[in-house]
Design a protein around this nucleic acid. Structure first.
Lengths: 356, 356
DNA sequence: CTGAAAGCGCTTACAG
DNA sequence: CTGAAAGCGCTTACAG
């Protein structure tokens, strides 16, 4: 009988890796050999400290350090099904609204030893769903920021693995949203205090969940302050959309306007100024979100700040709680983050013609 | 003899997963059963089409579709060591300079069936190295955008797996950088054509590789156009840093200034305007990068556009070529992307006092 | 072209 | 507390 042939079909890659830095990647078997224990003991020592005697623990730790051991995440993921990874899908990676959300999620993820995987839907519900499914295969859970897909798709995903939604409420799925009331209330009261009587809201996309909330908040705040609220539709929530809506805003006779978002507000302000109007002397403009660059304008934009970073961080915390079995108390509620008015130069008292 | 006991230690997770959506996750074994072939044939059909007869291929494809099969990326990664994942580390996730880089990398990654994993170094070389090592464990390769760590650390990483650097040149490591010459040349010629004689460069961080390149380009462009080039140091490359440097800029007597980046340019413009100066009538200001918001200012900022999106896309393409064994031709060279002047309102002809 | 088998590097229920 | 063993779901060299 000859020696048994050892197949090592998966080894060509390993063979390529070996020479890379002289010592290749150590495995728990290498550690076991050095420490003189069984590989399963090494596994226990490394993955759940406390289940192993202090002495062996140290032996193993030292061996691991000596060999410069790094766990192989795939090998770990295969039997457990967990990857310590969570996904975040945003509608548009170049939209500043999402920057702080990304950072917030990233930061709390890293703090809790989770890695963030980011994808973008390019504002398409179909792309979003594809990306989500793809992520579901590898990530432990998912955060959807301002998702475009419909509630049923979101619920279907949530049936598979934990999902947290930002900027939207979906029945049965936990969510984190900015509570617009406080910020809008402050904005409207500030305008009222400056003598404005009729103020306009420039709405966002018709299907936007958030735009509807903001309009509601606006209406009720105006009612409360006894101001006349008028509504103007925009074509798209961008700087360009803001420019296009300027005529309509003017024709309402409103002396102050709250825009669905900062981009609209900035475009509107640019167009009005180009037409010779003075901001805020002739018209006050208030944005929404306090995105990066909101203070680049002249005058800098007054805006209702959305706590986007906190939303991202809150969503991540929520998701990780779910993954780690905490927070069973209120797994499906909505977490509300407070908004606040950031008073800058684009809003103020109306000046009579003679004062200008 | 009793029935052999079957240990299934790794199954509690699977058991938890099963009920989730009624049918659990199908494996190649399930497909094999349905299609009536061996699992290894399924594997071949799914991972390298063409190695299997057309008939079996179809059989397998249909079974996979019917079972709604999704590969398990971890199971695939374990024997092959590949994950179809690449990492991108940026210094600051809220710095708009990186937005387009991220998007560019993301887009070409998705196109080539790779997933982007994003991390942030928070401007710290140490954090950056930690994040990089961590990513190296799971990703197939790495892109470093404006890395803060030193050349040796980068080379050490590159010894392990393919690495591509953006916005910096590191000997022995492939890189993608904007070629500043064309854009700066255009900017300086434009200023010269508008009658400026002495122009200032507001430098970025002393250790910044890019700032040094931009200053060099500025100097030689000025020499070519026979303009006097003066240099002003800034404390930090932010809007605030721009404000602080205004006095120094004024004291040089320059009538135009090119700033290391748009943030500095915007801060500088705000401070000068606040001091009563007219831009561009009394002083022209040109930024660098064309970040989001550069056109929010009044006047909108003239700037040298860096093709950041293309840099991200180019770096990703380069990395994936490396991973897929292409591009052996020039594995270590520098890929240069062209810059260009974006002429907006903040630069122009100097007006004599009487004309203002 | 296809089957049978070994192996990737971990984790964990089962016995001591 | 620790060892021996099975299993996670794939891939691929080896034989037909």
């Amino acid at each position: 009988m000859t020696e048994p042939k050892i197949h090592s079909p998966a080894t060509p890659e390993a063979a390529k890796k070996q020479p890379r830095d002289g010592k290749g990647n150590a495995t728990i078997y290498d550690i076991a050999k050095v420490a003189g224990v069984n590989p399963s003991t090494v596994s226990r020592a490394l993955s759940k400290p406390g289940r192993v005697s202090a002495k062996t623990q140290k032996l193993i730790q030292d061996a691991a350090a000596e060999l410069n051991y790094q766990v192989n995440p795939f090998a770990r993921a295969l039997p457990t099904g967990r990857t310590n990874t969570f996904g975040l899908i945003v509608a548009d990676i170049t939209n500043p609204t999402f920057f702080d959300i990304i950072r917030g999620a990233q930061t709390t993820g890293t703090l809790r030893d989770y890695t963030l995987v980011l994808a973008e839907s390019a504002e398409s519900a179909a792309t979003e769903l594809t990306a989500a499914r793809r992520m579901m295969a590898t990530a432990d859970g998912l955060i959807l920021a301002s998702p475009r897909m419909d509630d049923d798709d979101i619920r279907a995903l949530a049936r598979d693995k934990p999902v947290v939604v930002i900027n939207r409420e979906v029945e049965g799925v936990p969510s984190v949203i900015p509570d617009v009331r406080k910020g809008i209330g402050e904005a409207v009261r500030s305008l009222a205090a400056n003598g404005h009587k009729r103020i306009a809201f420039v709405a966002g996309p018709a299907q936007s969940w958030m735009s509807a909330r903001r309009w509601e908040g606006f209406e009720s705040a105006c009612e409360w302050s006894r101001l006349e609220a008028v509504r103007v539709e925009s074509t798209k929530p961008t700087v360009d959309g803001g420019r296009q809506v300027a005529r309509d805003v003017l024709s309402t006779g409103a002396t102050a306007v709250l825009a669905y978002n900062d981009l609209l507000a900035i475009g509107l302000m640019q167009e009005l100024q180009a037409g010779g109007m003075a901001v805020p002397d002739q018209i006050s403009i208030v944005g929404f979100d306090d995105i990066f660059g909101a203070d680049f304008t002249t005058p800098p934009l007054t805006t209702v700040r959305s706590p986007l970073g906190e939303c991202g961080a809150g969503a991540a915390a929520r998701l990780l709680d779910l993954l780690q079995g905490k927070g069973n108390a209120e797994p499906e509620g909505t977490l509300q983050m407070e908004t606040e008015l950031v008073l800058r130069g684009s809003s103020g008292r109306l000046l009579a013609a003679g004062q200008r």
